[in-house]
Design a protein around this nucleic acid. Sequence first.
DNA 1: ATTTAGCACTCTAAGTTCGAGAGTGCTAAA
DNA 2: TTTAGCACTCTCGAACTTAGAGTGCTAAAT
Lengths: 344, 344
Amino acid sequence: MMLDERKIKILAAVIHDYIATAEPIGSRTIARKYRIGISPATIRNEMADLEELGYLSQPHTSAGRVPSHKGYRFYVDFLMPVKKLSDTEQALIRRIFNKRVNELEQLVREAARVISTLTSYTTLTIGPQLKTSRLKHINVNRIDETKGLLLMVTNYGTVSHNIIEIPQNLNDSDLVRISNVLNANLQGKTLVEITSDIIDSIKNEMIEYDEILNILLEILLENLDDVDESGNVVSTGSSKMLDYPEFQDVEKAKNFFSLLEQNDLMTKVLKTSMKPDSINITIGSENPFIEFQDFSIVTSNIRVDDKDLGVFGILGPTRMEYSRVVSILEQVTNYLTKTLSTML
Amino acid sequence: MMLDERKIKILAAVIHDYIATAEPIGSRTIARKYRIGISPATIRNEMADLEELGYLSQPHTSAGRVPSHKGYRFYVDFLMPVKKLSDTEQALIRRIFNKRVNELEQLVREAARVISTLTSYTTLTIGPQLKTSRLKHINVNRIDETKGLLLMVTNYGTVSHNIIEIPQNLNDSDLVRISNVLNANLQGKTLVEITSDIIDSIKNEMIEYDEILNILLEILLENLDDVDESGNVVSTGSSKMLDYPEFQDVEKAKNFFSLLEQNDLMTKVLKTSMKPDSINITIGSENPFIEFQDFSIVTSNIRVDDKDLGVFGILGPTRMEYSRVVSILEQVTNYLTKTLSTML
DNA sequence: ATTTAGCACTCTAAGTTCGAGAGTGCTAAA
DNA sequence: TTTAGCACTCTCGAACTTAGAGTGCTAAAT
């Protein structure tokens, strides 16, 4: 059954009010606040219908109505108004992209902070999946008599560095040679493509440098492992959640914070709700992970030239200011992809 | 007035029990649990004395006693038993120092995590004060036709890297020359010593590279600013606090988390409670910052060869397991300084 | 055929009362 | 000096009460 216009108005009113107040809404309130021009009694009848259809529910018999997940879904799909951001908000976003920043990670981190400031929800991010990133540059710098720095830069602008011990018998031109060979063999490869075949061939090419090569390649492999750990999710603004009435119960709050600490779970969640669409909304029980029953997650892909460079995820109560969150996310990801496409 | 032995026993009992239970302790409980061989009535008299002397206090007339800050102080200074760590705990600590890690930051981060796991309190860390760190190595690597990487390594092993645009007209040997000059002029200097005089002299030395030098020096100055922001405090294990009865009140929990978010305040607090002693305990109102009335902080300096490389701070309720915390901190900082002294 | 006023009914949330329990301080006996 | 005894105090939770918000149904009004 399709909803008629009056039902839609009422549904919208309930959701709008509930998002703002977190209190169940009664028929009288709607009649008073949202001038639809019908009496509370009629609204009551309509609300009973909406409940039967699954869009609303009642916490208990004599309370007002609360939106169900289906209700939010309808709202998000058909009713949600486009929220224009205020000038100051826009300015705040633009500001971080005006700074000349050349590193993906830093840029993403700043963006996440702005998102969480503007939305007042927790912002999660996972960076580019290193598995798919390609080695752009690798070399060894000497920093003093005994120490050097192994540098790796990926095509996404991610830099990793490791201080290493340099064997006494190597001079600077040895290091240059090693760097050259490493580059020649590894440049353009994704990390998973670096197989033992390639490694062996490098070793063969430079048997005389066996000692340092072992060290370097071990570090390379270590970094590969770190990648698989998928522990690269970062969250910002988590303490804001304690302001919301749904977390006034300490049990709930504890639950939330320990969820956040489970990096692997959070990564999975972000990845699964990351669909081809630019913005994706997962409401309450729509989430395959039961732990997120009472949360909604809005994700947005950072995608440049068909490459996925990361994801933003806004985690909040199902009673989330969806329209606001979506606008902010759209805005930020837009700027970000624009900036990144010139940068990479 | 000095406390006689019996009073001390009773005080110790109250503190011991209160640390374990967070409930006020009555005379009967002490007589029952801690066989001191005197009746509840006598204990009551003694407790009344201890209260008058300021070591205990009563939440309300007909409740048991609770240690005051002065009580904790006495306990910490004179009574605290040395807590031996269990073998598994020791092993856990040793494990992180067995991994070959060459970077200060990473090592400190791991150490902080172990501390917070073992203590179940929040662990704060500030790394080496970059102001005092000396530039050990600086250079520019090319990573592709248009981009390069500015690398800076300090004597503490801190590495900072920035991707930069390289002007078209520069070839690799130009970069080498620039790196050499930068090194020659800046090596061994602390960041604050890099004055505009030095910068000017570098520019004069290589007027032909004005363009890139401006970029590089701008980044250098930016990094300097970041240092001053003192926003380099990191916390681990904050959600554990929600398990303690003193944070069952959401208001308190919120308060705690927003404290944690005030980076500048936290840095100040850590720095002020960081005394020459290796381990320092600040109990409740002893803390000059009123926000920390209800907390205790145990700090431990990471000091190698008279250089301060950072601080650990354990933040917990005044009812803290001081002896455990101190042992763990001692143990970890010991290992850490040992490792670092071979590393730096 | 809808809409609405009216009303009985339900349920929660916030007070209020009350008694049990834990603990105290004082007194007087050991 | 220590301790038993006892009256007193205060908190905490349980049980009860009530105001208020909201509902659903019925019957009248449109």
